[in-house]
Design a binder for these strands. Sequence first.
DNA 1: CAGGATCCCTAAGGATACTG
DNA 2: CAGTATCCTTAGGGATCCTG
Lengths: 160, 160
Amino acid sequence: MRFEEALADRSSWSTAGRCPIEQTMKVVGSRNAMLIMREAFYGTTRYEDFMNRVGMSSATAASNLKALTAADLLERRPYQEEGERVRQEYVLTDAGSDLMPVIIGLFEWGSKHGQRRSGVESVHVGCGEPAEVEVRCRAGHLLSSEDVELRVRTADRETR
Amino acid sequence: MRFEEALADRSSWSTAGRCPIEQTMKVVGSRNAMLIMREAFYGTTRYEDFMNRVGMSSATAASNLKALTAADLLERRPYQEEGERVRQEYVLTDAGSDLMPVIIGLFEWGSKHGQRRSGVESVHVGCGEPAEVEVRCRAGHLLSSEDVELRVRTADRETR
DNA sequence: CAGGATCCCTAAGGATACTG
DNA sequence: CAGTATCCTTAGGGATCCTG
């Protein structure tokens, strides 16, 4: 991964909270926030399940779910089973689903390089083959880290 | 993404720090650690450059570089320019390079959903097309979040 | 230049108790 | 069940000063 000359001066974007990576970390950069997203991908929707499966306190679950809802990664949705009162569930939004490559990427890295083995792998439900994260360009080329560089957008450039 | 029945009981792996995602977050789960890795991908190798480009204090730079070196994501390597004294540089290890999909994934999410636009995009240096993160199985199928499930490894199963 | 040492502040998070 | 409220501990990180 490299910079173009035009990007030699990072100060205009990479600091002051403009770096996209930093913005993402701001939202899901804590252990519990990320593990809540993991659970959401696993299909967990209820407060108590998030709390127990992530292994976090009630207060922490509440504040994280609230923050992730505010950031539009989760959507709070009322539901009612028959004979029961109305409850709330938390389901992934589109923005939340877009985080899947990151989740799988973290999972893959930890599986390969983490100290403690989990014995769990992520697989394609259709064919049973292990899932992997790849970086490709839109032309379809598989990229390694040296193939990627950062460039100021020129086509649909921002006004500011 | 779904669980198999065999994984209904998460307690044996997803808690107590065995979850691969959690293990990864333990290493690069803070803003500064992740941004240091970003810089390492950008080609930054020197202490002072990490410090200035990430926007962190000297002490924070030192402790994070030490931790990332201990975790084998960066390698400390002495070098010497002619006429200068010996200095240290920090370069990516293979394990560090394996984090690239995560970095690009975070970049992509922030670019799409972050509040503040950066005007920067990551592209394939070869053809100029934007880089994207994809999840595929080894058979080559492109996967969305519903296509992925977790399964206890059976082929090369762990001893414990 | 490349850190180490010290002090302080803030945010994340656990524990416990309480409520609609 | 789905949270709130309160209190406390710890880790991340900034600022400042010091050293080989």
